[in-house]
């Protein structure tokens, strides 16, 4: 097992984790489809799905981390996040993708493809942000 100080992903990305959609339906994390997220957001009063396009992927100074720059929403606002290279993002029409899918598969057993510049990821914002 990794030392306690090693950063790790939250448990819900592990293959077999049970996810509850907004309508109450239960699905395994590896079985989720784009429509599940879209329909859940439609039901939600607070959350809205945004398209976030990957614009850049850079390695971080922190080992095992990457810096991903997204263009978020219709205004293509620039947002950068620093995440573990195995952190999975859900790509529209494709499924789970990460900077290092081999590591994601190894650590989480989650089937995953390589996240690339140009991929459009599902992200969330609050509906009444203004």
């Amino acid at each position: 097992p990794p030392p306690p100080s090693a950063p790790s992903l939250p448990p819900y990305f592990t293959k077999g984790s049970i996810i509850q959609l907004a309508d109450g339906e239960l699905k395994r994390v590896e079985d989720l489809k784009t429509e599940d997220f879209i329909q859940s957001a439609e039901i939600s009063n607070e959350l809205k799905i945004d398209s976030s396009t990957v614009e850049r992927i850079d390695s971080s100074h922190t080992p095992n981390f990457a810096i991903i720059q997204f263009a978020v929403g219709e205004h293509r606002s620039q947002v950068s996040v620093e995440v573990l290279v195995e952190y999975p993002f859900f790509v529209f029409g494709q499924g789970w993708s990460s900077c290092c899918p081999e590591r994601t598969s190894q650590l989480l057993e989650l089937p995953c493809t390589k996240l690339s510049v140009g991929d459009v990821c599902i992200s969330l914002t609050l509906k009444n942000l203004r």
Binding site: P10, P11, Y12, F13, S17, I18, I19, Q20, L21, A22, L26, V29, L32, D36, F37, S40, S44, L47, I49, D50, S52, F70, V72, G73, H75, S77, Q78, V79, V81, F89, F90, C121, I122, S123, L124, T125, L126, L129, R130
Partner: peptide, 25 residues
């Protein structure tokens, strides 16, 4: 007898990152 372990259920939105751009008002 072994009590059945409760399986954790996670809400769908915990899987999706919040990428809220900074509001420029």
């Amino acid at each position: 007898n072994v009590e059945p372990r409760s399986v954790p259920v996670f809400p769908w939105h915990s899987l999706v990152p919040f990428l809220a751009p900074t509001q420029s008002d």
